[in-house]
Write a protein that binds this DNA or RNA. Sequence first.
DNA 1: GTAGTCATGTAAGACGTTACATGATTCT
DNA 2: AGAATCATGTAACGTCTTACATGACTAC
Lengths: 179, 179
Amino acid sequence: MDIKYAILGFLSWKSFTGYELKKLFANSMIFYWSGNNNQIYTTLIQLHKEGLVTNQVQHQENLPSRKIYTLTESGSEYLKQWLLSSPEIPQIRKSFLVQLAWSNLLSQSEINTLIEKYEYEIKMQLLMHREKKRRGDAVNPSRTSRENYIWKMISENFIRSYESELAWLRELRKNLDEL
Amino acid sequence: MDIKYAILGFLSWKSFTGYELKKLFANSMIFYWSGNNNQIYTTLIQLHKEGLVTNQVQHQENLPSRKIYTLTESGSEYLKQWLLSSPEIPQIRKSFLVQLAWSNLLSQSEINTLIEKYEYEIKMQLLMHREKKRRGDAVNPSRTSRENYIWKMISENFIRSYESELAWLRELRKNLDEL
DNA sequence: GTAGTCATGTAAGACGTTACATGATTCT
DNA sequence: AGAATCATGTAACGTCTTACATGACTAC
């Protein structure tokens, strides 16, 4: 999948500048791109060339001008086509599992340390996500109750992934200790 | 993370040719790279330059020659250093969640179709993994009971991820129907 | 005075994929 | 006859990341 659909999605919510989009990407987990300049600005320029978005330059005093991007009719159509396309299977890459796979080269205590470090990282992620959900400061267009529910469930999806990982880790540790 | 550690890991198990490694990657989920020629052969050449592996050319009649790669002492050291390094957090990319996020543009029945398609894909993945585990034909060095257990738990990790996803999907569907 | 925000853009490079290239052998 | 396996390698390209570049303003 491509960042362009995520950008078109944001613009289907409301108009944004590249700078604003960049921050939205940087602060979200669902929209998993880093939010680096290169990708955002060049994608916007390309979408503009293809007529999927228009922009309006807003001059400001004492601040740089901003380009406010708006979705066009054909942009909306293009996005909708993608929304209806068959979902891809999740791409899950856990380099920790690769470390574990070759942990035969490590001692029992080195393995335990490795697992503990990973467990700590996962717990931190979980805390972050739970805190974001609790504070309700996660991005959420919330145009309808359905949309609001869907965005909450998207947050919940991440939380459950981490919870499932922790449950798995507890079992792993317990059985390794008994071995 | 880099494919080179995964390759060094395989070679810490036993010697392999590039072609064999390619198939190992293509058939495994944990070692999530596609197993394309370019990456494998060029990485092996680079590892050889760095002295982390050596190779021995084996000429065969009626078949192309093969280069059998073996881990060196310094390759083993290099791998071990990485094994001891702090695990990265999992990289989870679910483009389906991006589709869901902007599903405000879709009708209720279009959303349901989308969810059903995704559910089907996840179920298929789960079946595949369960079947692989049941048949016991998944790659597993199984040099010690500890290693055998760890590799089984790695398979289990994938199965649980998909099970957790399905449980989440059931809840999503149920509540969207009631909304 | 150092760092951060606002705002846009470019350059260089890492990582990964598909496809191209060769050529004999074996299976259906 | 056509496809797959064995075996190595290269080319072209897509995607994403970090870092560079500018310049004014604001906050500590």
